[in-house]
């Protein structure tokens, strides 16, 4: 078996790379695929928190590279889904503890026994980025409809293009707020896609559920009712090659919907 190695990157920090990695990984595992998530953010690891696995980590990627353990020993299985495992970053080391060659080797080994290897990339365009990208053949560029995030995404896209190994890259637009787009206070999905001229793989709405899901260490894809969860499940489907239409994030239109809105508000107040 040769799995796909996908790097999740963004340039800018705080746009949702780790959340995206956790959710896409979980969604793919739920579909029955074997998935390994690699956290390459050495010194600033967080993927373990989002998955609720922080107490189970014994060995990290640096231990594997420095041969203190076998690769298999360092893989932490998810609580709920045995298809999903995590290779955690070392919290006490920095990005220089690992080089691109070593990371590529790990990716190559992991893809032999898994369907997907998802690499959560650190922010920035330095060593950490170069490491994370080294073993991947596909990339997902996460951005939000904000100027700084888009500018950084553009930079990342430029760097990805220069890399021979990266065969394809797609854009994931995170934290979209339909009401702001409607009032022309936020760039629309079309605006961002046009500016970056990059194919889209997902539109994730801003969802307060993300905060509670992080609090609980439970990716939001596990919540059947959450809109962001649904959007992430759709992204997973698209990665698998399904044609899934993008969610209609527009708030309900028309008189009836507005009446319903008011009714909801009334109910909430009482």
């Amino acid at each position: 078996m040769t799995g796909r190695v996908i790097v999740i990157t963004s340039g800018k920090g705080g746009v949702g790379k780790t959340t995206t990695s956790a959710n896409i990984g979980t969604a793919l595992a739920k579909e029955g695929y074997k998935v390994v998530l690699i956290d390459t953010d050495l010194g600033l690891r967080n993927l373990d928190l989002l998955l609720g696995l922080e107490n189970r980590i014994v060995y990290t990627i640096v231990d594997v590279i420095e041969e203190r353990c076998k690769l298999k020993q360092a893989l932490v299985k998810d609580k709920k889904n045995p298809n999903l495992s995590l290779l955690a970053a070392a919290q006490t080391r920095d990005k220089s503890a690992v080089n691109a060659e070593q990371l590529k080797e790990i990716c190559d080994k992991l893809k032999e026994k898994n369907d997907f290897v998802l690499v959560d990339c650190p922010a920035g365009i330095e060593q950490g980025f170069q490491n994370a990208v080294a073993g991947a053949s596909e990339a997902i560029v996460v951005t939000t409809p904000e100027m700084s995030a888009i500018r950084d995404a553009d930079r990342i896209i430029g760097l990805l293009e220069a890399k021979e190994e990266i065969e394809s890259y797609k854009l994931l637009l995170n934290r979209v707020r339909p009401s702001l787009i409607k009032s022309n206070e936020m760039m629309s999905v079309d605006d961002v896609v046009e500016i970056l001229s990059c194919p889209l793989i997902g539109i994730i709405p801003e969802d307060t559920g993300i905060i509670t899901s992080t609090n609980k260490g439970e990716p939001i894809v596990n919540d059947e009712n959450a809109l962001a969860g649904k959007a992430y499940r759709n992204v997973a489907q698209r990665i698998l090659g399904e044609e899934v239409p993008f969610l209609d994030l527009d708030e309900p239109k028309g008189l009836m919907a507005k009446v319903k809105n008011i009714w909801e508000k009334l109910k909430a107040k009482v």
């Binding site: 100027m147 009032s183 936020m186 760039m187």
Partner: peptide
Amino acid sequence: GDASKSVAT
């Protein structure tokens, strides 16, 4: 509104 998005774009 003031269409700040076009400024941003």
